[in-house]
Design a binder for these strands. Structure first.
Lengths: 315, 315
DNA sequence: TTGTATGCGTTATCAA
DNA sequence: TTGATAACGCATACAA
């Protein structure tokens, strides 16, 4: 018990005893067993994150934001990916509940019905980060994808584009993408602009996929003026395909993307996109969980980090 | 005890009892406490990974490879970043030792002297993945960065380039980059090609940094024929800068990069680079740890996953 | 096939 | 300021 105190609160131990303890610890190489500590105190220093995929760079900033905050407080980050499957997410959440983690961050906002049940039964704080949904399980830190879609539509309208294509990842199980698309379309409709069904595409992830999509648009509907992409690096693939075909951007085809990245800032021309503070989302989500697991803060958090339409030369 | 058995090995329990247990579990919402399980059995289902940075996409494939294998075996992945600081790495390792993780994967191959001590004292298996070093702490799964550098030098020589610049991230605390550079330079020297000191640059990470570097080379040494980049996306930044300046690639300047990425396959022209199976590195490292923590496999593993110089149109 | 006793290494609580 | 005791919830070993 005295050793335990010496490690957690050295001031509560006399300096003589403290010195003796430290010397023995050094000599025998004692390393406190945090598993036993967790069991005894029923406090966890683990936070779990479930993202749709680990392969994309999109989540790098989110992860870094979380990791930075957790490191400050001696918490550990556990990561897994769901592949946009609610079943895999549920299995992950079950595992995290069994491990009695201190909190869970879910990027998806669509879940198996058991997920809220499992988490609330275990009393585990949850933050959702994928979209600023109305009714989070517990807390939500994000921005409105729907508003972002509308803002991007407004930008394209302001630049005078009227014949517009929309290319995204499959919206099934991707509520964020669906919200963006809905916001985008609704704003266009307000100005009597309608995207024909054959120019609303759903494609796989990746640059090659973006290239194929823009090729399809160019081939089947050559009068299209602008293409809006929603999903990781699709627009970059499209830009490179236009370069290969000798099509000038934006005069021959304007392109924009829903998620900003370092790449879009550096291509020629650089690519208009929606910028959101992904590291801040991570940091705030993590901070809230740390606070909660220390008994601070309120259960329900709803934080809008906002976004910006970064107007670049591709539109 | 019977409940414990019913969950781990349902066949060892009579069907009547099993049914009763399952119904009660469902009714009361029982979730086994894995922390208590770990403490009791002194077996961990956690594997820790320390990468230099989480911000770059380079580690996404490594992480995915690890995660896929761990998921199959019910293991959990814990991640942190060291920022190429041996001190931060040591702190992380200390924390993982306290948590009695089942294994640790370190991407860096240069460590604080305490790191091997801590890990071996705790009996925690370690895999290093950054370079195929001669004397790993325990196991190593990687490829030879030195050989990769040499192979890339050979490629450039074969294409007839003789006035060559070398741009990398700072080599301090980055043994991999240093190994690549040494292998590269050594191979050039064999053909009596020498890179002048003023064309050996060390720059920060990022596309902007790559652009600045190539600008510096172009401005200060316009007769340079090729620039070799070592570090993430540097070459992409250089390519875009050349596009902005109207310099043709490869006739005006050839560029190549040490680490392949989706981006390099899609730019115009696409960029010659070294391809290595990063997901396989992760998968094998994870598998070895899983095996070890089950008492299988031998302590010392040394696996060379190899690499390929992918010759594209930028050289 | 089921159940009992015991211990894993901490921390909370209370006593000295 | 230090120490003794009990408890956290499971799994090991053994008994029935």
């Amino acid at each position: 018990m005295t050793v335990s105190r010496a490690l957690k609160d050295p001031d509560s131990v006399s300096s003589a005893v403290l010195a003796r303890i430290q010397s023995v610890i050094a000599r025998v190489g004692y390393v406190p067993n945090q598993v036993a500590g967790s069991l005894s105190s029923s406090k966890s220093t683990h936070v779990a994150l479930v993202v749709p995929s680990l392969r994309t760079a999109i989540f790098a900033e989110l992860i870094q934001g979380i990791s930075d905050v957790l490191k400050q407080h001696g918490f550990q980050l556990m990561i897994s990916d769901s592949g946009n499957s609610t079943q895999i997410e549920e299995a992950a959440v079950r595992g995290y509940a069994a491990q009695r983690v201190g909190g869970v961050i879910l990027h998806n906002t669509r879940h198996d019905e058991n997920v809220p049940r499992i988490l609330s039964a275990a009393g585990i704080p949850v933050v959702e980060t994928g979209d600023l949904i109305r009714k989070p399980i517990d807390a939500v830190v994000s921005f409105s994808n729907s508003a972002a879609g509308a803002a991007m539509a407004e930008h394209l309208l302001a630049r005078g584009y009227e014949r517009i294509a929309f290319v995204s990842l499959p919206v099934k199980n991707r509520e964020r993408v669906l919200a963006f698309r809905r916001g985008f379309m609704a704003r266009l409709r307000r100005d009597k602009v309608v995207v024909p069904a054959e120019l609303i595409l759903e494609v796989p992830t990746g640059m090659v996929s973006g290239a194929r999509a823009i090729a399809h648009v160019l081939d089947t509907s050559p009068t299209t003026q602008a293409t809006m992409f929603s999903g990781d690096v699709l627009a970059a693939g499209a830009l490179f395909e236009c370069q290969r075909r000798g099509i000038a951007i934006p005069s021959g085809m304007a392109i924009a993307n829903s998620d900003d990245s370092e790449l879009f800032q550096n291509t020629l021309p650089d690519i208009t996109s929606v910028r959101s503070p992904r590291d801040e989302i991570g940091a705030r989500a993590a901070q809230w969980i740390v606070d909660r697991s220390r008994g601070l803060g309120a259960p329900g958090l709803r934080h809008d980090v906002g976004f910006t339409v970064v107007e670049r030369h591709s539109t």
